[in-house]
């Protein structure tokens, strides 16, 4: 009799284990597209068109780019899901990428503005395939050829306070910011993304009105100070990167 109950218990155990093994929660995914753009007064920023910044300067952008790195979603349990390693955002064109991600609840979007030190210091762009934004072709001149590392952000154009109407500004702007000290991390505040077989778009906006505005003692006043190659006038490069990351906001 004991032997019968033992056999019964064994069969129950095996069938129980098997049913556990067979139970697989359905792994579903969602599709998300992440877009990067620059806005002014709530509309898409126009390259080559004169605008007035917070200091009253008339400014025209001819080249406006920055690197974004390690774009990640943070799930509720704190783990991070890397969506994209490197992206060179050029605000004169559309910038987006689409990825499949596991369904779940995500509580933050994290990214870097610039290139992290381990991919920046003493690296060789010729090691990357042309398709990479870190390659010679893909970086489109966003690396310091005479020194080590990448140019994290470029803003080139013209500015002045004197012109009126359609007169073109004349003061050269050449903000080239990029060294390990000017890398900035960004994490979206108040972010909640619940994905269940969804197709979603996340827009990462750059508010140009905040880029050239006072920020906690920072001065990015283009008619006073408009040229930096980071190693010269490093303060402007740091202030520009601070303002750039403060000007980001995420729209779900």
């Amino acid at each position: 009799m004991n032997r019968f109950f033992s056999l019964l218990a064994f069969v129950a155990l095996v069938s129980g284990l098997q049913s556990c093994k067979e139970y697989k929660p359905e792994l579903t995914t969602s599709t998300i597209t992440i877009k990067f753009d620059a806005l002014r007064d709530g509309s898409r920023f126009q390259m080559g068109r004169i605008f007035t910044d917070a200091y009253g300067n008339r400014v025209r952008a001819d080249l406006f780019r920055n690197y974004i790195s390690m774009v990640s979603l943070v799930s509720d349990d704190g783990s991070e899901l890397l969506l994209k390693d490197f992206l060179l955002v050029d605000y004169s064109i559309d910038n987006e990428f689409t990825v499949e991600v596991p369904d779940g609840r995500y509580s933050a979007l994290k990214l870097g503005v610039g290139i992290p030190a381990e991919f920046n210091t003493d690296q060789d762009p010729a090691n990357y395939p042309n398709s990479s934004p870190l390659s010679v072709a893909g970086s489109q001149g966003m690396f310091w050829q005479w020194s080590t590392g990448y140019i994290f952000a470029k803003f080139e154009g013209k500015a002045d306070t004197l012109g009126v109407g359609s007169a073109q500004p004349t003061l050269n702007i050449a903000i080239h910011a990029g060294n390990d000290a000017s890398f900035r991390a960004y994490e979206s505040p108040g972010f909640t993304l619940d994905l269940r077989k969804s197709t979603r778009t996340i827009a990462v906006h750059l508010d140009v009105d905040k880029l050239f505005a006072p920020l906690e003692g920072n001065e990015v006043n283009l008619t006073n100070n408009a040229v930096t190659h980071s190693q010269n006038n490093s303060q402007l490069a740091r202030d520009y990167m601070d303002n750039l990351v403060a000007a980001l906001w995420v729209e779900l």
């Binding site: 060789d124 001149g141 690396f143 050829q145």
Partner: peptide, 15 residues
């Protein structure tokens, strides 16, 4: 500023 001979070659070709 440049770590290797290989990376130095990028200098005159981007100036």
């Amino acid at each position: 500023g440049v770590p290797t001979l290989e990376t130095q070659i990028l200098v005159p070709l981007h100036d």
